[in-house]
Structure formats: structure tokens, C-alpha cells
Deep mutational scan, measured.
Amino acid sequence: GTVHVGDKTYHFPTPDAAKKFAQEIAKKLNLQVTVKNGTWQVH
């Protein structure tokens, strides 16, 4: 899975790992999470 946070991109071996990371970052930074075609965006 891929997660975009601002101008950074993180790659994870599984979709679940990407989802978990995106949700944790969003919670920590009080941001929104959207997913499109398996790519997570934190914004």
C-alpha cells in the first residue's frame, strides 16, 4: 500500500499496514484521510 502525507510518500508491504499508518498519522496530526485506488492520502 502507498500513503501520501503532504509531499512525502510511504510504501507498505500490505494494504492493511498502509491503512493503519494513514489512520494513525491522521489522528495524530488531526487531518483527514481519503483513499483512492488503494492509495491513501492524509491531508
Rank of each mutant, 00 (worst) to 15 (best):
G1K: 11
G1I: 07
T2L: 09
T2Y: 09
T2W: 12
T2E: 07
T2I: 13
T2Q: 07
T2K: 10
V3Y: 01
V3P: 01
V3H: 01
H4G: 04
H4T: 12
H4M: 15
H4Q: 14
H4C: 13
V5N: 02
V5L: 10
V5M: 08
V5A: 04
V5H: 05
V5Q: 02
V5S: 03
G6N: 08
G6F: 15
G6L: 14
G6T: 03
G6C: 08
D7V: 11
D7H: 14
D7T: 14
D7M: 13
D7E: 11
K8Q: 10
K8L: 09
K8D: 06
T9L: 10
Y10P: 00
Y10W: 07
H11N: 08
H11Q: 07
H11D: 05
H11P: 03
H11A: 06
H11R: 09
F12Q: 00
F12T: 00
F12R: 00
F12W: 03
F12K: 01
P13S: 13
P13R: 13
P13E: 12
P13N: 11
T14V: 04
T14G: 05
T14C: 07
T14H: 07
T14A: 04
P15K: 13
P15M: 13
P15Q: 15
P15C: 11
P15H: 13
P15D: 12
D16K: 09
D16V: 08
D16Y: 10
A17E: 13
A17H: 07
A17Y: 05
A18F: 03
A18V: 01
A18H: 00
A18P: 00
A18G: 02
A18R: 00
A18M: 02
A18T: 01
K19V: 05
K19P: 00
K19F: 12
K19A: 14
K19R: 14
K20S: 10
K20A: 13
K20E: 11
K20I: 11
K20L: 11
F21V: 02
F21T: 00
F21I: 02
A22S: 03
A22D: 00
A22I: 03
A22E: 00
A22G: 02
Q23A: 09
Q23M: 15
Q23H: 15
Q23W: 15
Q23F: 15
E24C: 14
E24I: 11
E24R: 14
E24M: 15
E24G: 10
I25K: 03
I25C: 10
I25E: 04
A26E: 02
A26Q: 03
A26N: 02
A26H: 02
A26F: 03
A26T: 02
K27V: 08
K27A: 12
K27P: 01
K28P: 03
K28Y: 08
K28F: 09
K28V: 09
K28M: 11
K28R: 14
K28C: 09
K28E: 09
K28I: 11
K28G: 05
L29I: 03
L29C: 06
N30Y: 04
N30Q: 08
N30L: 05
N30H: 09
L31W: 14
Q32V: 14
Q32C: 12
Q32A: 11
Q32E: 10
Q32R: 12
Q32W: 08
Q32G: 06
V33F: 09
V33R: 01
V33N: 02
V33P: 04
V33M: 07
T34D: 05
T34S: 12
V35T: 07
V35M: 14
V35S: 09
K36M: 14
K36V: 15
K36R: 11
K36W: 12
K36A: 11
N37A: 05
N37D: 15
N37E: 09
N37H: 05
N37Y: 04
N37M: 05
N37K: 05
N37F: 05
G38Y: 08
G38Q: 06
G38H: 10
G38L: 05
G38F: 08
G38V: 04
G38P: 02
G38N: 14
T39L: 08
T39Q: 14
T39F: 10
T39S: 13
W40H: 04
W40Q: 02
W40L: 06
Q41E: 15
Q41W: 15
Q41S: 11
Q41G: 05
Q41K: 07
Q41D: 08
Q41M: 14
Q41F: 15
V42R: 01
V42H: 02
V42G: 02
V42M: 04
V42Q: 02
V42P: 03
H43S: 12
H43E: 10
H43I: 13
H43D: 09
